[in-house]
Amino acid sequence: MSEKNNFIDYIRIFCRSGHGGAGAKHFMRNKLTAKGGPDGGDGGRGGHIILRGNSQMWTLLHLRYFKNVLAENGEGGSKNNCTGHDGKDIVLEVPLGTVARDEETGKIEAEILEDGQEIIWMKGGRGGLGNSNFATPTNQVPEHAQPGEPGVEGWKNIELKVLADVGLVGFPNAGKSTLLSVITAAKPKIANYAFTTLTPQLGMVAYRDSKSFCIADLPGIIEGAAEGKGLGHRFLRHIERNAVLLFLIPADSADHRKEFEILRNELEQYNPEMLQKDFIIAISKSDMLDDELKEAISKELPKGIPHLFISSVTQTGLTALKDLLWETLNKPVAGN
């Protein structure tokens, strides 16, 4: 049970593609031929390790159970010019938005963005050529056959950045899970304590005329996340691809402006490009506010960022929120 609550967005895994089979060194021998020519076959290719996109997957949880991913070696060549069998490929299915890197260099080796997309991540070694390939008019009995090429191996990191149109940003217990459960079909586990959400919850928001968009409740940010405290970077990485960031600040916050500034500051320290995104502020739990308090809070909030008051409990303001999110996601890009 606890396994399901883990924040699965990062897996460290040891991978090795298959070695190529060796080419055979063999000369034709049968009862009619005492000393025939070379007939050593080629070795088979080693198995590849392949990544395949699967739009039905949302986490990397299933990869936790692979401690080592070892593809099969190619078979050696044999007499009668028989080529060895290729090693069996290993296909790892991953969610969309998965990035694979080499641990040592940090280099991105593959990125999966589409359903069914396949990338040969680690190529199997080529099979060696058998000695029949090396016969020449001057050397009709080549003693040489190639060994197979080795596969590649190493520690790899697989990361998942959630692909969602809207990212929900807020301190723990800001009401993000409750909002998601009300406006989407997602059913997150909700409890009234910090860090309830440890897996990004994704939900589709049904909008007018059969349109929809995706919203992600991401694990709660805390002050200092950019330095790696708390869930830190593992959380912030998920926000990189969201087009719109919806800052959820509870009505009962001691200082709404300060809470927004802390959240914004975390994002900026992690990656200044985050500030290029569209921001929207929603004051949650606002069923406890009267008009006078709403006006006071509105004055506190930064100018130039749209804000609205919502209540997931009474469902107040949710239609206006969906409208604003849809308009922001679909506004024409400047210069087009």
Rank of each mutant, 00 (worst) to 15 (best):
N265L: 02
M274I: 07
K285N: 06
K299G: 05
F279N: 01
Q269T: 03
K277T: 03
I281D: 08
E273I: 01
D290H: 06
I305V: 14
I297Q: 00
L301R: 12
P302G: 08
Q276C: 00
L289A: 10
P272N: 07
D278R: 12
P306E: 12
P302S: 09
Q269S: 09
Q276T: 13
H307G: 00
P272I: 02
S284G: 02
D278G: 01
F279D: 04
L289K: 07
M288E: 15
D287S: 11
L289R: 08
I305T: 09
L301D: 09
K303F: 07
K303L: 02
E295W: 04
K303R: 08
G304I: 13
K299M: 05
E266C: 13
G304W: 06
E292F: 05
L293N: 10
S286Y: 04
K277N: 07
M288H: 08
E268K: 15
Y270P: 03
P306F: 06
E295Q: 15
Q276N: 14
Y270M: 03
I281N: 06
E292D: 08
Q276I: 01
E266Q: 15
S286N: 00
M274N: 15
E273D: 14
D290A: 02
E295M: 10
S284P: 03
L293G: 00
D287F: 04
S284V: 06
K277P: 07
I280V: 15
M274D: 06
S286A: 15
L275D: 10
L301V: 07
A282F: 01
I281Y: 02
G304N: 12
K294S: 08
D287L: 07
E268D: 11
I281G: 07
A296V: 09
S284A: 01
E266G: 09
D290F: 09
I297K: 01
I305W: 06
G304M: 12
I280M: 03
Q276D: 12
P302V: 10
E292V: 10
A296T: 10
S298P: 03
K277G: 05
M288A: 14
S298C: 00
E268H: 14
N271A: 03
Y270A: 02
I281W: 02
L301G: 05
L267K: 15
M288D: 12
P272Y: 06
K294W: 05
Y270I: 04
F279W: 07
K277A: 09
L275P: 10
P306K: 13
